[in-house]
Design a protein around this nucleic acid. Structure first.
Lengths: 314, 314
DNA sequence: TATCCTTACGGAATTCGTAAGCATG
DNA sequence: CATGCTTACGAATTCCGTAAGGATA
């Protein structure tokens, strides 16, 4: 039994049981992968994969039970490397953060600046994507941590912890009818065409839920993945914008007016996600605590070690 | 990184940092072990062992943190083999039970007979030893499970579960002064020379505690590791015996009289011990449930997966 | 017939044990 | 000077990629 065999098995599942893709992903030859799997199965004395002739179709019951062990073996091998790397040079390395546009653009800059000052030896990579892409990046190990408001908590492979809560604001051009000082209600809002986030992004779910609960039909004339795009179209008069409050900047956005909307839409919680069972290097802890001071290393380590389903929060 | 390197590290710790002993234990050459460790340290970029010149003295902080990961890696490799073996031939294999003499002689025979009938393909090895030896056998992997009344719960590497409770009896030759029908008390007992178990065996702790609590000095003229020896000397008139109630057989021991002593000494709990984090083959679960029907596979698996310190009992 | 896995083969790299060397209590 | 780890070296094994083969949708 060796790690290359285990990697081949894990990657075969990840790549949907296509050994050719596995070989590409592992930067090796396809017959090599074929051999790795065959030799592991021979050593174990049991087949891990269901085959139809020469095609791989899925996992056998043995494979189903073996896969979590294989995942943990490879995770622990990675953890071991991290432990050593952390002792060898605690303040040098690579930190890959996966975040949504909103986080990367509005929430992270402060933490990134502070972290770069305190950890000049760590090179920081910022990956952007949808919440689900972020989750996959963290699960696959391509990113050390993910930050998003949606979806992350749905993945049992991830440990998520709350960073901060925020609400939406409504943005309109100066002089817009909604900016008349009267109370903002869902009913009034629903009378205008709206410009807001794509479904699955940045609290869009809470927006839809609020209107649905009030029995209101709304006209979303334009949906975008980030607040910059939304604000641009609001400035053009296309409709009324609904964006995260952090995404509004009094000075930069002085053509617009922001109207508090926390009484209209449920509060959102932005969460950080780490791969369950992973060991995190000290600078990863440092970064998270810079971003969300309540998330101490001890708390995070406890959450990482807990089995799926356990609730550990500050 | 490969498993042989990890095995070398684990064994080096187990063998007290003597590579020559490690080589023997792993059935390889001493320079081989030396190389495995060196290459792993080179790959990790950190030293795991503290050296004084050419001698190994102990673990570095890196090594201290790495060791639990290495242990779990090797355990999971073993677990993977067991999963596969169980699917390949669930009813064939080797079951090694480590137990004290008392358990092996008086408690286990029924379970062993039933298990042999139901699992003819499993060859059963019975290892005997002191509770601490039993614990070490299970921790090292030389035994699948351990059964004893003492000490097992002290090892964080083990998961222990209660099998049954029992009390002591006092045994005397027929016609002995204590067999006069009057109530048995610690005070009366303390007037006679005693023959009982060695310290650390079969509830001896509760015997000592009872006398100590009553402020009584006792004269243990002979201590033995098993009830057969004790009974033999009681028959010879050397003293009054205190043994586990299961160890008294009305018919076989008809030269002796057993006097109930459950009001004198605290109840004892015999426990089964498994290595924490291990996967157990189905016949191991079958054996345990034959011995202690309350210990279901689901319960045991939950206990095995729990971190040290968690209490999971029926 | 294109896709996908297995088998065959040969060179390269790795592995491992023996023998010799060296430091230390 | 005996113990215990490292280094050196050569043989054996293992590993891996290329090329060819066979099954299936």
């Amino acid at each position: 039994m060796n790690f290359q065999q285990l990697r081949s098995v894990r990657e075969t599942v990840r790549q949907g049981f296509n050994l050719t893709l596995v070989a590409d992903a592992l930067h090796t030859s396809q017959p090599g992968v074929s051999r790795q799997i065959k030799e592991l199965e021979e050593e174990l004395g049991a087949e891990l994969f269901v085959r139809a002739g020469r095609r791989f179709l899925g996992l056998t019951p043995t494979g189903e039970q073996a896969l979590p062990l294989i995942e943990r073996l490879l995770q622990d091998a990675e953890n071991l490397r991290r432990v050593a790397a952390d002792y060898a040079a605690a303040d040098r390395g690579l930190l890959t953060v996966a975040a949504t546009h909103t986080q990367a653009r509005y929430a992270l800059p402060g933490a990134v600046r502070d972290f770069r000052d305190s950890h000049p030896g760590v090179s920081l990579h910022l990956q952007q994507g949808s919440p689900r892409q972020i989750a996959e990046l963290v699960i696959s190990g391509a990113a050390d941590l993910g930050i998003a408001t949606e979806a992350l908590a749905e993945y049992p492979e991830l440990v998520t912890l709350p960073c901060y809560r925020w609400s939406h604001v409504v943005v309109v051009p100066r002089g817009h009818a909604l900016a008349d000082g009267q109370a903002l209600t869902l009913e009034r809002l629903a009378q205008f065409p709206l410009v807001t986030y794509e479904p699955g992004y940045t609290g869009r779910r809470h927006i839809d839920e609020a209107f649905a609960k009030a029995g209101l039909e709304v006209d979303v004339v334009l949906a975008a993945m980030d607040a910059d795009v939304i604000k641009t179209y609001v400035e053009l008069g296309i409709g009324v914008g609904i964006i995260a409050s952090v995404a509004f900047d009094e000075q930069r956005d002085d053509h617009l007016v922001a109207l508090d909307a926390r009484h209209l839409f449920a509060l959102n919680t932005t969460r950080v996600a780490l791969k369950r069972g992973s060991f995190q290097r000290s600078y990863v802890h440092a970064f998270i605590q810079t971003f969300a001071p309540t998330l101490t290393p001890a708390l995070i380590e406890r959450a990482l070690a807990a089995p799926a389903g356990t609730l550990i929060e500050p």
